[in-house]
């Protein structure tokens, strides 16, 4: 079942995530993707995540597709201008990769090439506009995609007057246009949240058909956000980054804007013995999903390598 079909269905939807490596040794990524097979509707493939240079996300998505696993191609606006982003999108389409997630991207200064020049030619909203334009047989500049339009000769005027236009274009021809399921992200626990909602509205207007959120660990916060975002009318998958340790949770609180792990969760991780840590992490993830299941369309799990525990959490939650 595709992500599109899953989102249209009644059941809760789960998505996973893998991060391509810096280098060509991708075995771990394929293994992690394999863990998610049949357990999630789709697996996100990150795009130079954390502004760290890695192997192309599109290349990894193609591989996943060949493995029979549904990928979500993440595209950030940091590394490519509007030409490169659109050409990447067209490339995805010929490999049957439909799901694309438009993101701003972390700032280049936070990654491993801070010397580089960030692009940000488009932002997540205008990238979504580009996706929508391509689906309608045109690029962002309004040019027609090759083959997507039929050129038809106009009849000569019978009165012999000068013909202004000799041709017209009919189309777009749907089967010659790429199809995408555009997605976007939002940070539900950002404070204040109104600017997030305002941008979310723009993303949906630009064509976003699903939303995956930044990590949420407080059901009450998600509930507040969902109430404020009720009117946008697209399915929202709440994000959860698997908490691997108390230290990691504290690090996220101190360093990742818009993410807040409550103290009681940190305490549980801190109290766990080394052997139990993964079990506690799975329990926390499963509990969060159970608590938030009534609020959203599903969950986007960001396991940071912990694909097996993520799948265990989905099973432990007993929601699917």
């Amino acid at each position: 079942m595709s992500l599109r079909e899953a989102l249209a269905g009644e059941a809760l939807v789960f998505t996973g995530e893998v991060g391509p490596p810096k280098g060509i040794d991708c075995d771990e990524v394929w293994e992690e993707a394999e863990d998610f097979r049949d357990k999630v509707a789709a697996v996100n493939v990150t795009d130079n995540q954390s502004s760290v240079m890695r192997i192309s996300g599109l290349a990894a998505c193609i591989k996943l597709k060949q493995m029979g696993i549904e990928p979500v191609l993440q595209l950030v606006c940091r590394d490519r201008n509007r030409l490169a982003l659109q050409s990447e999108l067209l490339g995805a389409a010929i490999w049957g990769i439909e799901n694309v997630l438009a993101l701003t991207g972390d700032h280049i200064a936070l990654g491993d090439h801070p010397q580089g020049r960030p692009v940000h030619d488009l932002d997540s909203v205008t990238l979504l506009q580009a996706v929508t334009a391509l689906m309608n047989g045109r690029d962002l500049a309004g040019n027609r995609l090759d083959g997507a339009w039929k050129r038809v000769r106009l009849p000569k005027p019978k009165d012999g007057s000068k013909q202004k236009r000799k041709f017209k274009y009919e189309g777009p021809i749907p089967e010659k246009c790429p199809t995408y399921l555009p997605g976007a992200v939002v940070t539900p626990c950002a404070e204040p949240v109104e600017p997030q909602i305002l941008k979310l509205e723009k993303k949906v207007a630009a064509g976003a058909k699903f939303i995956q959120t930044q990590a949420v660990y407080e059901p009450a916060a998600l509930e507040r956000f969902m109430k404020a975002a009720e009117h946008v009318g697209v399915p929202i998958l709440a994000g959860i980054v698997m908490l691997k340790s108390a230290g990691m949770a504290r690090f996220m609180n101190g360093n990742v804007a818009g993410v807040s792990v409550p103290d009681h969760l940190i305490q549980r991780l801190a109290d766990a013995s080394k052997e139990d840590l993964q079990k506690v992490s799975i329990d926390i993830t499963a509990e969060l999903m159970r608590d938030m299941a009534g609020m959203c369309k599903g969950f986007h799990l960001m396991p940071l390598g912990w694909s097996k525990p993520a799948v265990e959490a989905i099973e432990a939650a007993g929601l699917s």
Partner: peptide, 29 residues
């Protein structure tokens, strides 16, 4: 920092600063 024209990214802190530089205000806020 990201020259965004349509609203903020998710990288502003509770005190309204930019994640790239804690001394810089988030322009969008």
């Amino acid at each position: 920092a990201k020259a965004l024209l349509n609203g903020p990214c998710g990288g502003y802190t509770e005190d309204g600063k930019c994640e790239v530089d804690p001394d810089t205000d988030c322009a969008w806020l």
